[in-house]
Computed example of a mutant assay.
Amino acid sequence: MMADPGDRPSDASGGLVRHIPVLLSAVLEALAPVPGQIVLDGTFGAGGYTQALLDAGAQVIALDRDPHALESGDAMVERSGGRLSLHAARFSELDRFAPDAGLDGVVLDIGVSSMQLDTPERGFSFRADGPLDMRMANAGVSAADVVNQLAVGDLARIFNFLGEEKQAGRIAGAIVRRREAEGAFETTRDLARLVETVSPRKAKDRIHPATRVFQALRVYVNDELGELARALYAAERALKPGGRLVVVTFHSLEDRIVKRFFQNRFGGVEGSRHLPQPVERPSIFTRHGKAMVTASAAEAEANPRARSAKLRVGVRTDEPAGEPDMSIFGLPKLVPLNSINV
């Protein structure tokens, strides 16, 4: 499941969360930063990982596509003494910022940030009413554009594949009927109320009925799965031999992408009954430590967002970067964002 269960605040349901870097000790252990190294933080957010890397003496290149995160990071840049540069960019293009000699590490914390959730006007939350937006970069197609334009089948596919919503078809149909009868959806609570009428909340339910729909819209509007897949290949190109790629995910779809990437890049013999000869894939990465690290009981109790977090690590070998192969991820074929009118 993608949604974080329970009424406690979560990145899926849109509750208010105080920013605490997730799996920070494990991230630092995996990256092992030391003075003189250059590490790229592809998801700057509130700067939790970046600050810890600076404290360890590393030089940090940080990226974020959210202009609000960039503004809040200005003070950290000033305090860094020249060891931090902060750029407006998607992490899928992180290799553009790598030095010629390559990076010593890349860290990616995938998903929505607590600052985005805490700002009703960003439209990520249905607990506090706001415009139906959800755009991390404050540009492009919004969630309102999606629910007010797409056909029933297209909406159902988004809710089904990206939100794992069992009532996807019924909810999509209700959205189209409502907008045709009463006009466009404009606010988060407007959409959340509609979803709740289609799939009423029962006493035993641990999450709001709109949780998965909102999550699916956010993932779709920001092309989060495609961005993650492209970022993994960008990190492969940007890391020097021995450099480490550390990825923290929070949902099954994200973790599956990271897992499949590493399985493919760890190399080995690949064969099937359909192939006459086994295929030897080179080891572009090697595994570091456990295949997957999760939060301790103490961290999960102190930081609810950490309960669903998974960390995976790969160490770059001296093999040349391979050709990107998006087919290994099994990403769903959905309506292209650029076909929606803004």
Rank of each mutant, 00 (worst) to 15 (best):
V34R: 15
P35I: 13
P35D: 03
G36L: 11
Q37K: 08
L40N: 07
G42I: 13
F44R: 04
G45S: 06
G45R: 10
A46W: 05
T50M: 04
T50F: 00
Q51L: 15
Q51C: 02
A52I: 11
A52F: 09
L53S: 05
L54G: 01
G57N: 08
Q59I: 02
V60T: 05
V60E: 06
I61T: 05
A62E: 08
A62I: 08
D64E: 10
R65P: 00
D66Q: 09
P67A: 10
H68N: 07
L70N: 10
L70V: 03
E71M: 00
S72R: 14
D74F: 12
A75Y: 03
E78I: 10
R79M: 12
S80N: 13
G81K: 14
G81M: 13
G82L: 10
G82N: 02
R83Q: 15
L84P: 04
L86I: 11
H87T: 10
S92F: 01
E93F: 00
D95G: 04
D95P: 02
D95K: 00
R96L: 13
F97D: 01
A98M: 06
P99A: 14
D100S: 14
G102T: 02
G102Q: 07
L103T: 12
D104I: 09
D104C: 09
G105N: 05
V107H: 06
D109S: 13
D109W: 15
I110D: 00
V112A: 11
S113L: 04
S114N: 04
S114D: 08
S114R: 07
S114Y: 06
M115C: 02
M115N: 05
D118Y: 03
D118M: 02
T119V: 14
P120L: 15
P120D: 12
E121M: 13
S125G: 04
F126N: 08
A128Y: 06
D129E: 15
G130F: 00
D133N: 05
D133T: 03
R135I: 07
M136H: 09
A137Q: 14
N138D: 06
G140Q: 11
G140T: 04
V141F: 09
V141K: 07
S142I: 01
A143V: 02
A143N: 10
A143F: 13
D145A: 15
V146W: 06
N148I: 08
L150F: 05
